[in-house]
Design a protein around this nucleic acid. Structure first.
Lengths: 210, 210
DNA sequence: AGATTGAACGGTTTGTTGATTATTCAGAAA
DNA sequence: TTTCTGAATAATCAACAAACCGTTCAATCT
């Protein structure tokens, strides 16, 4: 079984290299098999298909990212706004940098989420869970008190959708995107009503004074 | 000159019928010219090109919509939240219905905003102006008091982007979209901070009592 | 038997050719 | 002269064939 895992790893490694160098579409199963000194047919004893290799690569990478996000969501030395800021900005920057460093990654990402909508959904769900964790932590600390956290998390995702899909960026630079995300974040935290903001500031000061 | 305008109108009418019946791509300039009893070459004395005919049709239709939105933005018998609600929901419903009634409209819309990004930009700008009007009216009535209205309008558009692009709806039904927009709207108005919502309610009651 | 191969199959992509169409413009019509 | 035409042009599209590639599986090897 350890042997089998090693072979899986070899396949993933070879595919990772070829996908990022030539792109998902331009990489053939025969090539990946060749890199691992096996026949194309044999790949199918380890993965159901080409897309599953890509999914495995994406999952591996994404899991690390998720753990990072989870830490940001409950960082002890930051208040709720700072934690949400950290979360959303980390996600924007990761996507932006990945895209800039390797434009081929976009093709692969698009193929996966087109062919396997459940995968894209799973990512959103994970991030939503982290948002819920953030809000629970905020409640524990008396920062926010949100009745339906799951629903609110969904709404936060909806409102920040623009920053998750590079197709919607239309040649915007990272600083412009960051400025816009900062604005949306402020709106989400404080709302449009001005007295709300005043009340919030008062609440923070009261909390700091005690 | 009145003569010329009549011919323009004839061309627009003929194109409108053909575009909505057969689609933008499947309609030829020769056909539109034939409908107006003229040669294809002659169309170019009235419009620089095919896309400009489509743009004229879209502009005409959109202008009516804009006027409607403008009325909603300053409706005297509604408070700021209701006006914003009316605005955003009207926009969502218009897009949804237009799309459901005539899926060909999407092709034309996509072609225009792909080939003429400035047109899509112009529409966003117009709607942003209306949002600013709404906020100015709100300030006049003591409902909101927003420092940088232009920027805030941009942020509201950013946060509600999902509801403006059918490509992002992924098989969602209108009721689901409306429920989601309602949630985002609440978030935008009240913010995540709970004391803000309380303060807002208090402010409304104080305003009603005076 | 279980693991592995590689030829065979069917679906997709690619490349090519012919037709269609937006646009132009020299000249006919008014 | 001004208005309009319709053939000419160049660009795009559609259709078809060939090549390619993911996937399967009967045959081979260990």
């Amino acid at each position: 079984m350890a042997e089998k895992d090693a072979v899986r790893e070899c396949i993933i490694d070879a595919a990772k290299k070829r996908f990022s160098h030539f792109g998902y579409a331009k990489t053939t199963m025969a090539e990946v098999a060749g890199d691992c000194a096996m026949s194309p047919g044999n790949l199918y004893r380890f993965f159901p298909g080409k897309l599953d290799i890509a999914e495995a690569i994406a999952t591996e990478d994404y899991s690390k990212h998720l753990e990072h996000l989870r830490k940001l969501a409950v960082a002890p030395n930051k208040n709720a706004r700072e934690r949400l800021h950290g979360l959303l900005f980390e996600e924007l920057r990761r996507t932006y940098n990945k895209l800039e460093k390797d434009p081929r990654a976009l093709d692969m990402a698009r193929t996966i989420s087109q062919e396997r909508p459940s995968f894209a959904n799973w990512m959103l769900e994970n991030e939503r869970k982290i948002l819920v964790e953030l809000m629970q932590e905020a409640e524990r600390r008396g920062e926010f008190s949100i009745a339906d956290k799951e629903f609110t998390a969904e709404m936060v995702q909806s409102a920040t959708m623009k920053f998750r899909y590079p197709q919607l960026w239309t040649k915007l630079t990272l600083p412009k995107l960051e400025r816009e995300l900062e604005g949306v974040l402020t709106l989400l935290i404080e709302g449009l009503c001005p007295r709300a903001a005043e009340a919030r500031r008062a609440a923070i000061m009261a909390h700091a004074a005690e």
